[in-house]
Simulated assay, not measured.
Amino acid sequence: MSRAILEPLALFLAPFAAYAIYLVLRARYPLEVEHWTGVRVSILTVIGLAAAVLGLAALNLFAPRGHGVYIPAHQENGVLVPGRIE
């Protein structure tokens, strides 16, 4: 469950981190309010949302799928046999 939350969150926060690194490399203090105007934050938010949505779509498209038939859990001779994919 945490992977389902952390991956999109990391993709969303990546543009903000990249912009902060850009500010540091330009010898600017990244925590000053003047660098985080409404327009810049809006653009970074849209880029982050797009990255998160595209990342989830790519994960869904390229995720490995189980091949075979699911056999549910059942009892054989009084012994519980767990479910499996054959």
Rank of each mutant, 00 (worst) to 15 (best):
L54M: 13
Y22H: 10
A58T: 14
L25Q: 12
A10F: 06
S2D: 12
A51E: 04
G68A: 08
L56K: 14
S42C: 05
I71H: 10
Y29S: 03
A58V: 09
G66W: 08
R26N: 15
S2F: 14
A50I: 13
P8I: 05
A50Y: 10
A52P: 07
Q75K: 03
P15K: 00
E76C: 00
L54T: 06
V69G: 01
N60F: 12
V53K: 11
F12R: 04
A58Q: 15
V53N: 03
A18F: 07
G38T: 11
E7A: 07
V41T: 11
G66I: 11
I71A: 03
W36G: 02
P15E: 02
H67M: 12
N77I: 02
P72W: 09
P15G: 03
E32D: 12
G48V: 00
R28P: 03
V24A: 12
V33R: 11
Y19W: 10
I43V: 15
W36H: 06
E7C: 02
G55N: 06
I21F: 13
L25V: 13
N60T: 12
L13G: 02
G38E: 11
L6A: 09
P64S: 09
H67G: 06
H67I: 15
A27W: 14
L80K: 08
W36P: 03
R28G: 06
L13M: 11
L13T: 06
G55T: 05
V81I: 15
G55D: 05
P64A: 12
G48Y: 01
V69E: 11
E86W: 05
L56I: 07
A27E: 15
H67P: 01
G38S: 08
A52E: 00
A17D: 04
G83K: 08
S42G: 15
L11W: 08
P15R: 03
R40L: 09
I5S: 06
G38F: 12
V46D: 00
E76I: 03
I85E: 07
F12K: 02
A57L: 15
I43T: 09
A57G: 10
A58C: 10
I21L: 15
G78C: 02
L54V: 07
Q75T: 10
G78S: 01
G55Q: 09
